[in-house]
């Protein structure tokens, strides 16, 4: 699984409605491995809905989402190829960092203690007291643990929903470095954020959503902060 894959994550005419509210409409996008796609847009533009669909936690009301030739749905075994880091760390506060990783490793069919040690060392939690419950961790430590959990099974797709929202500048810089590292390793990374500067620092693909539709979709080798800001402002001009 994972880093050597060249499978493209494709959305074809995807729509999502909640009752009478249309959250996404006719979204067609392609996310390519080895790129960091920053999904931008004002509140209510459909960014988190899009991430929910990509993570398989939600089903599209119309259209198709595929990874390579396979359909990505909530019943699909492909969900094991996804790593997700959200606002909340998605770990058990009553378990220690190691116990959390051991639990998720076992659910993914991995029993390697070395892999858990490796992940804890990578995110800088190897020095934490072994039995310390995750609820005693700072916000930054929890986000590090969340990243370790998301990377544990070497996912093909990494999804981030405002991962740096509650981090201090040092924590945000560390996270940006980790995203860069994953991009260079050839992983497909989709990052939902409001932070245009953070997006410009790492994104090689910028998608701007507006009122549930794709307003801009641009991929380049790199973006400057000014370019991202200009793209965003042009795409969202007039939106409330």
């Amino acid at each position: 699984m994972g880093l050597t894959s060249d499978r493209v994550l494709r959305l074809v005419n995807v729509g999502k409605t909640f009752g009478r509210h249309r959250a996404l409409a006719d979204v067609s996008l392609a996310f390519v491995p080895g790129r960091v796609a920053a999904v931008l847009g004002p509140n209510g533009a459909g960014k988190s809905t899009l991430l929910g669909l990509l993570s398989t936690l939600s089903q599209p009301s119309q259209g198709r989402i595929t990874l390579g030739d396979e359909e990505l749905s909530r019943h699909s075994p492909l969900r094991a190829t996804i790593g997700y880091v959200g606002h909340e760390p998605g770990v058990y506060g009553d378990l220690s960092a190691r116990q959390n990783l051991r639990l998720f490793a076992s659910l993914y069919g991995m029993a390697s203690a070395e892999r858990i040690d490796e992940m804890l060392a990578r995110v800088g939690l190897d020095g934490v007291r072994r039995e310390a419950a995750a609820r005693t961790f700072s916000r930054g430590m929890l986000q590090r643990l969340a990243l370790a959990r998301a990377l544990l099974h070497e996912p093909e797709i990494l999804l981030f929903d405002e991962p740096g929202a509650a981090l201090d500048p040092a924590g945000a810089a560390w996270l940006a470095g980790e995203l860069q590292r994953e991009r260079e390793a050839g992983r497909l990374v989709v990052l939902v954020t409001h932070d245009l500067a953070a997006a410009a620092a790492i994104a090689t693909h910028v998608v701007v959503l507006r009122r549930g539709r794709v307003a801009r979709d641009e991929a380049r080798a790199s973006f400057s902060a000014d370019e991202v800001r200009r793209i965003y402002e042009e795409a969202t001009r007039g939106s409330t």
């Binding site: 993570s55 398989t56 936690l57 996804i82 997700y84 909340e88 998605g90 659910l107």
Partner: peptide
């Protein structure tokens, strides 16, 4: 969410 995303 992490539990639901796992292959379990």
């Amino acid at each position: 969410r992490s539990l639901l995303l796992s292959p379990a």
